[in-house]
């Protein structure tokens, strides 16, 4: 875990090789990767704790990555999510790693993805908590098999979320704080209505809206069941492999774009060409490719345009 979070050149290569090895050698479907996202204060961490208890009760080992959005100029961060996740205390079948957003030393998306890959090779289930602030939903949707959106009663964040056109990303909606009664039920109804209007492919999966109380442990079993059935449906339809592949490809392109801009991508044929190239690339390995393509771009950039 420390190795894959190391940005020093020598270590980085070693880590990428290891990650690719893990990705290609872990037999499919492997561990479900479950993303939880939602506004700050929605209760994601408390819900991670509740889900963790339920998963442990079902005898599954769990790896968790909690991503803290707080990045300041100082680069310092207080990683506070552990406080809410208590079910893991003293349990060797649970691994909890928090990470802070960082501008330097490799950026966050890389580190999170690497962490998830490692944990997926070791644990039965992987949970990823990220705060829903625009970009991060799509980031987490690229590395999660199942994306759970955590909403809270009466808050404006759900409206914001719908407005941002992000309603089609999540696979499951969990309306938390159901202990607050009517307000939570109203939010669930609004959400269901909103989903009815949204444009989703008439595919097999309709995202369920589950009422939960992370605090009191209500509805957690139902949520856990919904997660399981979503994963099962992905496996059954063959969608899982596609989805992971698509997510990984998007990750490669975004990683390159972040570093070199669309200008850099253009030097090796542009985004579309890159997508096609990745699609025909046989191996599931994606980490090494980032490095290889980066070298290609750097060479292209070094050559005078002719």
């Amino acid at each position: 875990m420390n190795l894959v979070d190391d940005s020093r050149p020598g270590r980085r290569e070693q880590a990428l090789a290891l990650l690719d090895q893990l990705e290609s050698e872990t037999p499919a479907p492997g561990a479900p990767r479950i993303g939880l996202t939602g506004a700050p204060g929605a209760g994601k961490s408390t819900l991670v704790d509740a889900l963790l208890r339920e998963l442990r009760r079902r005898g599954r080992s769990v790896g968790i990555v909690a991503v803290d959005p707080s990045s300041a100029k100082s680069g310092g961060a207080l990683l506070g999510d552990r406080v809410r996740v208590r079910a893991s205390a003293g349990d060797p079948e649970v691994f909890f790693r928090s990470m802070a957003a960082r501008e330097r030393l490799g950026g966050l998306a890389d580190a999170t993805r690497a962490g998830v890959t490692v944990l997926a090779a070791v644990f039965d289930v992987v949970l990823v908590e990220t705060v829903g602030v625009g970009q991060s939903e799509s980031d987490v949707s690229r590395l999660a098999d199942t994306l759970v959106y955590v909403a809270q009663p009466g808050a404006g964040d759900l409206l914001q979320f719908m407005k941002a056109g992000l309603l089609e990303l999540p696979d499951i909606f969990a309306v938390n704080k159901a202990d607050q009664g009517a307000a939570a039920r109203r939010t669930a109804l609004e959400l269901e209505a909103g989903l009815g209007l949204g444009e989703r492919e008439a595919s097999q999966w309709t995202p369920p809206v589950v009422l939960v109380s992370a605090r009191d442990g209500l509805g957690i079993r139902e949520l856990s069941d919904a997660i399981d059935s979503h994963f099962a449906s992905l496996v059954e339809s063959g969608e899982l492999a596609l989805r992971r592949r698509r997510g990984a490809d998007a990750f490669v392109i975004e990683a390159l774009e972040r570093r070199y801009g669309s200008f850099g991508l253009d030097r090796i044929g542009g985004r579309g060409a890159l997508e096609r190239r990745l699609r025909v690339e046989p191996s599931a390995a994606r980490y090494g490719i980032v490095a290889a393509l980066a070298r290609e771009i750097e060479e292209a950039l070094a050559k005078p345009r002719g």
Binding site: S74, G75, G76, A77, L78, L79, G80, R82, V83, S88, A89, G90, F96, S98, A100
Partner: peptide, 22 residues
């Protein structure tokens, strides 16, 4: 935090083994 470190602080009353695990 202010001097730029990443800080894990989980509050009071932890057992030595919980601290080592974290």
């Amino acid at each position: 935090r202010d001097v730029g470190m990443e800080v894990v602080y989980e509050g009071i009353r932890l057992s030595p083994s919980e601290i080592a695990q974290s």
